[in-house]
C-alpha cells in the first residue's frame, strides 16, 4: 500500500494523534492502539522491524506510568499503606492513559515510514505550505541521524579522556552534558552554513516560481480514506 498518497498518510497520523491526545479513557485508547496497529499492518510500512525503537523507551513509559499512579490522589483507593493511598482507580487510569497515548503517537508516526521524504515534501507543498518551510522540515528530519552520531562521538570522546560517567555526581554530569553541547551545536551551525552556500549555489529561491518534476495526484481511495478519517474523527470527538 505504498502507493497511497502521502497526504492521506499525513492526515491519518493527524487524526490518530488528535484522538490519542483528546481521549482520556484507557479503554478507548486501547481500541485506538489496536486500530493503529491494524492500519500499520495494512500499509505494510515495515513497522515490525522498528519496534525495537519502542522497546528502548519502555523504561521511560514505565516511569511515567508510576509517577501518574503515585501522584494522582482522586478516585477510589485500590492500595493503601499505613493509611496513605498509594494507588487509586483514577491514578491507574491516568497512568495507563499516558502510556498508551505515547505509544499510539509513536506508532502512528510509523505510518509515515512507508513513503519517501521527497513524497512528503511534495505533499506539504501541494498543501500550500511554502517550499522553504517544507524543505526546512525535511532537512531537519534528515539531519537527526547525523546529529545523533555526532552526539555519540562526543559522548565517547569525553569518556575516552578518563571520565567515568557512571561514577560522577549528577551535578557534574549535568555540567559535562552542557559542555558536550558545544561541539554538537558548533557542528550543526557549520553544516547549516555549508548547506546554505551549497543551496544558494544551486539557485535556491533565485526565482519566485519553482517548478516540480512530479506532482502528486489523489486517487479515489485517497479521497475515500481522507473523507472517512476526518468524518470518523469528528464523530468520535463529538
Amino acid at each position: 500500500m505504498r502507493e497511497l498518497d502521502p497526504r492521506s498518510k499525513l492526515l491519518m497520523v493527524i487524526c490518530i494523534s488528535t484522538l490519542a491526545i483528546v481521549y482520556q479513557d484507557p479503554w478507548k485508547l486501547l481500541l485506538l492502539l489496536l486500530c493503529t496497529i491494524l492500519m500499520l499492518a495494512w500499509l505494510d510500512s515495515g513497522w515490525l522491524s522498528r519496534m525495537h525503537a519502542l522497546a528502548k523507551i519502555l523504561p521511560l513509559l514505565a516511569l511515567l506510568f508510576l509517577l501518574q499512579c503515585l501522584f494522582t490522589r482522586q478516585g477510589v483507593p485500590l492500595l493503601s499503606i499505613h493509611g496513605i493511598n498509594v494507588l487509586t482507580d483514577q491514578g491507574l487510569a491516568m497512568g495507563l492513559g499516558v502510556m498508551l497515548r505515547i505509544i499510539i503517537i509513536i506508532m502512528s508516526a510509523m505510518i509515515l515510514l512507508s513513503s519517501s521524504e521527497r513524497d512528503f515534501l511534495l505533499a506539504l507543498v501541494q498543501w500550500r505550505i511554502p517550499y522553504e518551510i517544507a524543505f526546512m522540515v525535511m532537512v531537519g528530519l534528515h539531519f537527526l541521524p547525523i546529529l545523533r552520531e555526532e552526539a555519540l562521538n562526543v559522548y565517547y570522546a569525553v569518556q575516552m579522556r578518563g571520565t567515568e560517567l557512571q561514577k560522577i555526581s549528577a551535578r557534574l554530569k549535568i555540567k559535562l552534558y552542557t559542555r558536550m553541547l558545544l561541539p554538537i551545536i558548533s557542528g550543526a551551525i557549520y553544516r547549516a552554513e555549508q548547506m546554505a552556500i551549497a543551496m544558494d549555489a544551486r539557485a535556491f529561491r533565485a526565482y519566485p516560481q519553482r517548478s516540480y518534476m512530479r506532482r502528486l495526484k489523489l486517487k479515489k481511495r485517497d479521497y475515500f480514506l481522507q473523507i472517512t478519517m476526518v468524518l470518523l474523527s469528528v464523530i468520535l470527538l463529538i
Binding site: 570522546a157 569518556q159 575516552m160 567515568e164 558545544l182 561541539p183 558548533s186 557542528g187
Partner: peptide, 24 residues
C-alpha cells in the same frame, strides 16, 4: 574495561577532531 580505563591506555583521534573538542 570501561571506556575511561581504555582511554588512559589507548588514545583515539576521530576523523573530524572538532567532534572531540568540548572545552572553551
Amino acid at each position: 574495561m570501561s571506556l575511561a580505563e581504555i582511554g588512559r591506555q589507548i588514545a583515539y583521534v576521530f576523523q573530524n577532531p572538532a567532534q572531540q573538542i568540548f572545552c572553551t
